[in-house]
C-alpha cells in the first residue's frame, strides 16, 4: 500500500492528429487533474506535423500549468534517421524521456540521464526492473498483458528486495499491442508506406479492423495495432492503490477525454461513479488482461455507468 494517492498520467497521443488538434487538446489538458503528461510521437517517424521543438513548447506550457512532463521515444526504431531523431530527443535538455526501446535506453544511459521505462520494454520480473533501476530508471510501466495477480506478486517481490521505482498501469484506452515495419492504414488504401500520403491522419481514433462477423478485433493505427475494445480499469483503481501501483495511464482519444479524466479522478479519490447514462467512449470495453484472461474479455459489468 502506497501512502501517496494514485497519480494519473496522460499517455502520448498514439494517433496522428493535425497540429491544431494537438494544440487544442493540450490547451485543455493543462486544466485536467492529471499529474504527468507524456508528449511526443511514439509510433511512426513519418508523422512530422509536430517537430521536437513543437513538443518542447507544449511541454513548457504544461510544466507551467504544474504538470510533470515526459517525452516518449519511438517504439520501433528502424533507420539511421530514427536514431538521429532519438539522439535529439535524449539531448532535449528539459524533460525526462520515456524509453520505449533499447535504443533509447542506450542513448539515455550513455548520457547519464534518468529515464522512464515504457511498457514495450517487457519488464515482467523484478530482476529486469532492477537492472534498469541501477542504470537510472525512475519509473516503469507494466507490460500491457500483465494481470493484477502477476503484478501484485511482482510488486511484493520488488518491495521485499528494495526495488522501489514507481509502477504505472495502462488503465484506459485502446491497448497498444504490436508494431510492424508495414503500415496497415496505407495497406488499406493500397499505398506503399513510402508514399502513404499520411492517410492515417484521416483516422484520429484509428481504423477499426473487424471480423467477418462484425466483431471489433483490432484498431489499425499506421504501423501500430491497437486493441479493438477500449481497456477500462476505472473500477480497479482502489485495488491498484492497495497493491502499490503508483500511477494509472489514460491514453488520449480525440473525443471525450476531459470526461474520462474526470471519471478517473473521481474514482481515484474514492468517489462512487456518477450514475451517468452516457457511456464515456463509443467502443466496446475490455479488462480481460487485468483479470488474468484474454485481453479482449470484459468482466466488470456496469452497463449503466461505463
Amino acid at each position: 500500500m502506497r501512502d501517496t494517492p494514485l497519480e494519473l498520467t496522460l499517455g502520448p497521443v498514439l494517433f496522428y492528429w493535425s497540429r491544431e488538434r494537438y494544440e487544442a487538446f493540450y490547451r485543455e489538458a493543462a486544466d485536467w487533474p492529471v499529474d504527468t503528461v507524456t508528449l511526443g510521437e511514439s509510433v511512426c517517424s513519418r508523422r512530422r506535423d509536430m517537430k521536437l521543438d513543437d513538443w518542447l513548447g507544449l511541454g513548457r506550457e504544461l510544466a507551467q500549468a504544474g504538470k510533470r512532463v515526459v517525452l516518449a521515444s519511438q517504439t520501433l526504431i528502424e533507420s539511421e534517421a530514427d536514431l538521429r531523431d532519438l539522439r535529439k530527443l535524449c539531448d532535449n535538455g528539459d524533460f525526462l524521456v520515456e524509453a520505449n526501446d533499447q535504443s533509447a535506453l542506450q542513448g539515455l544511459i550513455e548520457r547519464g540521464l534518468p529515464f522512464v521505462g515504457g511498457a514495450a520494454l517487457n519488464l515482467y520480473n523484478r530482476q529486469a526492473i532492477a537492472v534498469l533501476e541501477r542504470a537510472g530508471m525512475q519509473a516503469w510501466q507494466a507490460p500491457v498483458e500483465m494481470s493484477r495477480e502477476a503484478l501484485s506478486t511482482l510488486l511484493e517481490d520488488c518491495r521485499a528486495q528494495g526495488v522501489e521505482s514507481p509502477c504505472e498501469v495502462f488503465a484506459h484506452g485502446h491497448l497498444p499491442l504490436a508494431w510492424s515495419s508495414r503500415c496497415f492504414t496505407a495497406r488499406r488504401h493500397r499505398r506503399p508506406k513510402d508514399r502513404c500520403g499520411f492517410v492515417c491522419q484521416d483516422y484520429p481514433e484509428g481504423l477499426a479492423l473487424r471480423s467477418q462477423e462484425g466483431q471489433e478485433v483490432f484498431t489499425l493505427n499506421g504501423i501500430q495495432t491497437l486493441s479493438g475494445a477500449c481497456q477500462d480499469l476505472r473500477h480497479e483503481l482502489p485495488a491498484m492503490q492497495a497493491m502499490g501501483v503508483a500511477a494509472a495511464r489514460l491514453s488520449p482519444r480525440a473525443a471525450g477525454m476531459a470526461e474520462i479524466v474526470a471519471a478517473y479522478d473521481a474514482a481515484r479519490r474514492g468517489e462512487p461513479p456518477a450514475p451517468d447514462p452516457l457511456r464515456l467512449v463509443d467502443a466496446s470495453l475490455c479488462d480481460g488482461y487485468w483479470h488474468g484472461g484474454a485481453g479482449m474479455a470484459r468482466r466488470t459489468e456496469e452497463a449503466s455507468s461505463c
Binding site: E145, L177, A178, W179, G292
Partner: peptide, 21 residues
C-alpha cells in the same frame, strides 16, 4: 512474423497466452 518480435501482444489479447508469457 511481421510484427516486431517480443513486442507483439496480439495473441494474448485473443487468448490470454502470448509468445512472451
Amino acid at each position: 512474423c511481421i510484427m516486431a518480435e517480443g513486442r507483439c501482444y496480439l495473441s494474448s489479447y485473443l487468448t490470454g497466452e502470448s509468445p512472451n508469457t
